[in-house]
Amino acid sequence: MTKEELQVLYKAKILPESKNPYHFEVADQADLKIEAYNSLCGDKFQLYLETEGELIKKVSFYGFGCAVSKASTSLMARKLEGMQFKEAANLCNAFVSSLKEQQPLQAFEDEELGILNQLMRFDGRIDCIKLGWEAIDKNLK
């Protein structure tokens, strides 16, 4: 990825999403609290899930992270609302697998995830992209 491509990617999706993240707030009343933490770089988000049975009604998150991890977690929060636990875990698992090139992303046909997935080629940032997704996958499966 060239510098120009990187700039386009940041301008188009990463920065708008990370500067106005979805439900970026502490939600202590949430039914489920999951920590997403990368001990190597220090990024740490608390994920808050309001649930009804196994239905995810609302996802919020709060913490410290780079533009990529924040944008990625924000996109994830949007996607997971309205899903059942299993569905959410499957999506997160498939997305994390796609980052590890274990599964092609085309299966998703999802433009936003596609953009995130492009960042995969952006060396050294996979951990940032998968931070929240991996936490959901581990905790809900």
Partner: peptide, 28 residues
């Protein structure tokens, strides 16, 4: 601008810097 984003953009200008906690969490 988060240090990782700084490091990624500097990398595109062939500049190698470290970003993170530098194995000094109590200090940070």
């Amino acid at each position: 601008i988060h240090p990782h984003d700084i490091a990624s953009f500097l990398n595109k200008d062939q500049i190698a810097v470290r970003a993170g906690m530098h194995c000094t969490q109590p200090l940070l």
